[in-house]
């Protein structure tokens, strides 16, 4: 006999914890891309899978209210990030997409290398998250 509304407390409680871990791992992958395996693409895919896990565990309506981003807009914002890092170097008289880096002192982290490749990678990250979730949610909402 099939229950009308099954109780998935186990799924929801474990997914809350697992989503945090996947988010932290995707953030690590995103920042580690300069010197280690990782980068914007795989970090974005992991963030998309973390949000996908939330969508699996809860209702669609709840998560759409909890994460009020329009994922289609996110693609545009990511592309703007990538283009503006290119144009920012043009403003100083360098060719398009010239990258700069320098070392800065921070109070907690010590010496940190900051590059302009990071905003470009952030653009890639936002495009990947937006595109993956747009595809998945568009297919899921198809049978209305």
């Amino acid at each position: 006999m099939k229950q009308l509304r099954p109780n998935d407390m186990m799924l929801q409680v474990s997914m809350r914890l697992i989503t945090l871990i996947i988010f932290a791992f995707s953030f690590y992958l995103f920042l580690a891309g300069h010197n280690n395996p990782g980068g914007g693409f795989i970090g974005g895919l992991m963030t998309a899978s973390a949000i996908l896990v939330l969508y699996l565990a809860f209702d669609m309506k709840t998560i759409t209210k909890a994460i009020p981003f329009n994922f289609t807009t996110m693609i545009g914002v990511g592309l703007l990030f990538a283009v503006f890092t290119g144009i920012a170097s043009m403003l100083y008289g360098f060719p398009f997409l010239t990258q700069f880096f320098d070392y800065f002192q921070f109070p907690v982290f010590g010496e940190v290398e900051l590059t302009t490749a990071l905003p470009f990678d952030l653009g890639v990250y936002l495009v990947v998250v937006g595109a993956a979730l747009t595809i998945i949610l568009a297919i899921a909402e198809d049978d209305k």
Binding site: P6, L11, I18, S49, L52, V53, Y55, L56, F58, D59, M60, K61, A140
Partner: peptide, 20 residues
Amino acid sequence: FVGTVAMSKFMERGAVFDRD
């Protein structure tokens, strides 16, 4: 893990995402 959960949910409910 994500794939297994998605396939199990499809087996149990008939749909991967709940509407509401």
